[in-house]
């Protein structure tokens, strides 16, 4: 089709192919595959329903979904927007389909761009990150597949104390670690969020949230999440906090 002019190094040579052929192709297939994945991700839920005849009451599913949406809904939009400049268009489709973005996809894309000596944000950078992310997906899926098979039997062979320990004490440590990871950048927001959540949890445990319908766990979440957001926004306007420098 178009010639690959070696003349200009970097952004402008071959922009035509990238913009007129590569990106439309990626958008077409990215949209299809990610939308298809929405349907197919229901697999286990549907298997539970059809094979084992287990279907939770609608209100439980709705309640769980509202809680998840209240907690993570903002990330559905914020994360794609925030990571887009680094991932590029193909990387965004792939990374949000395959997950593990900050700990796996972004580092792989960045390292590959460095080693192939291309610039982030340029067509060449975008192509290289596409290749690197595809490679990381192959590695990750294979390793986890083998691990999930092997680890299930390993886990079931563990003594009772350790099974209980894995059940009870691994999760709190993850919560503490993630909280600390974000708290490093925003200690004041972390402090405010912790006090808010602790107060709400105690109100819940002591039964003071009884005025709200149902089991008012969602109030604890909503107040913790949105309260912390409002406090953070206020702090930012007061000049008390700012985003960390890009490293």
């Amino acid at each position: 089709m178009s010639g690959n002019t070696d003349s200009v190094d970097g952004q402008h040579s071959g922009d035509g192919v990238y913009e007129t052929e590569f990106i439309p192709y990626i958008n077409k297939w990215g949209r299809r595959t990610n939308a298809l994945a929405v349907l197919l991700s229901l697999g286990p839920a549907v298997a539970l329903l059809t094979v084992f005849d287990i279907l939770p009451p609608t209100q439980a599913i709705t309640g769980a979904f509202i809680s998840v949406a209240a907690t993570f809904g903002i990330f559905w939009v914020v994360e794609p927007l925030s990571y887009y400049p680094v991932l590029g268009i193909p990387g965004t489709y792939m990374a949000f389909l395959s997950g593990n973005i900050s700990n796996l996809r972004l580092p792989c894309a960045a390292a590959a761009q460095e080693s192939a000596d291309v610039q982030t944000g340029t067509p060449k950078g975008s192509i290289i990150s596409t290749i690197a992310i595809a490679a990381s997906i192959g590695v990750n899926t294979t390793l986890l597949g083998v691990g999930a098979f092997a680890l299930v039997s390993t886990f079931q062979a563990l003594p009772e104390l350790w099974q209980n320990a894995l059940d009870s004490y691994l999760v709190p440590a993850v919560f503490g670690a993630i909280f600390a990871q974000f708290g490093r950048d925003y200690p004041k927001v972390a402090g405010a969020g912790f006090v808010l959540a602790l107060a709400m949890t105690m109100l819940l445990e002591l039964g003071y949230l009884g005025v709200f319908p149902g089991y008012p766990l969602y109030m604890v979440i909503i107040v913790s999440v949105f309260g912390t957001i409002l406090i953070a926004r206020w702090m930012w306007k007061q000049g008390m906090i700012e985003p960390p420098e890009e490293s």
Binding site: F72, V189, T201, T228, W236
Partner: peptide, 21 residues
């Protein structure tokens, strides 16, 4: 400038709730 702050605050609020539980 607010995008990362709102994201981090949402995360902190949520995990503060999880860990207080």
């Amino acid at each position: 400038a607010l995008i990362p702050i709102i994201g981090a605050a949402a995360m902190l609020g949520a995990f503060a709730y999880f860990l207080t539980g």
